[in-house]
């Protein structure tokens, strides 16, 4: 068991194992997305208040969940990279950043599209929207710090520190934004009272959440494999892999 873990930590084994896992993950992702989307967009009933436009939550809510989940994965991998100096953890951490940023952007865009018919405005300075926007800035900070430093190992460790500082800050930012909005007694956001969700809507939502997780796993492995190849380009096994294909 432990030797398996240790082997997995070496870029070469990771590359082959991840390669074997990928097709399965891809199939799983496709099935989950197919079922979830069909169920969510076609089978699930329309909302009695919001009509059909509520269906965007099947994308929006999982994307918002993933935006935070990916940050945690990135920071966790970053901590492992800093403490145990594991090369693979650096790769995982840095591969997470663009994926997380995309999920955050997706959550923001779908939220805005939903906000226009529902709230009458694309953007309101609501606590959740604001903290999601700040999360996007944190992701972009990690990405640009990583790309600004030439040496990849130094760059990934620097980015890991920034991700960890961000993790300490995320709850502070979140609560400060929540209190800021309540303090201001803002122009009352007409957030619809969400009726406790109907199971016919909840099940597809959960399926979509799992589908997003599987998709994340798949893309993460793809990016990490690519990153491993790039970093180990001077080693023999990469030369063999490249010549084979």
């Amino acid at each position: 068991m432990w030797t398996f873990f240790h082997k997995l930590g070496s870029p070469r084994y990771f590359y082959t194992y991840a390669g074997r896992l990928l097709p399965w993950l891809a199939v799983l992702t496709l099935i989950l997305f197919g079922v979830g989307l069909y169920w969510g967009l076609v089978v699930a009933p329309a909302d009695y208040q919001q009509g059909e436009s509520y269906r965007i939550i099947f994308i929006h809510v999982p994307a918002a969940w993933m935006s935070m989940f990916v940050y945690m994965v990135m920071a966790g991998a970053g901590a492992i990279a800093l403490i145990w100096k594991m090369k693979l953890a650096e790769v995982v951490a840095i591969s997470c950043a663009p994926i997380g940023a995309s999920f955050t952007a997706l959550a923001l865009v779908t939220g805005m599209l939903w906000g226009k018919p529902m709230w009458g405005a694309y953007w309101v300075w609501d606590a959740r929207l604001t903290s999601e926007l700040i999360l996007l800035f944190l992701y972009l900070g990690v990405i640009s710090l990583y790309s600004a430093i030439e040496d990849t190992r130094t760059a990934s460790r620097a980015a890991a520190i920034l991700a960890l500082v961000g993790v300490v800050n995320i709850p502070i930012i979140h609560y400060s934004v929540v209190w800021w909005n309540t303090l201001h007694q803002g122009a009352t956001i007409t957030k619809l009272d969400q009726p406790s969700m109907d199971t016919r809507m909840l099940i597809p939502l959960l399926i979509m959440a799992v589908a997003f997780k599987a998709y994340f796993g798949m893309v993460l492995l793809m990016r990490a494999r690519c990153e491993v190849l790039e970093r180990e380009r001077n080693s023999n096994w990469v030369r063999e892999v490249v010549q084979l294909s």
């Binding site: 700040i134 944190l138 934004v177 201001h184």
Partner: peptide, 29 residues
Amino acid sequence: LTVGLRKGGMLLSLLVLPLYIPLLIFASG
């Protein structure tokens, strides 16, 4: 984090400003 970079100035503000937000909220509040 940016001291080793030749042009760290813009990057520095990108890294640091989001972390300043809670402080700004409470202080101006």
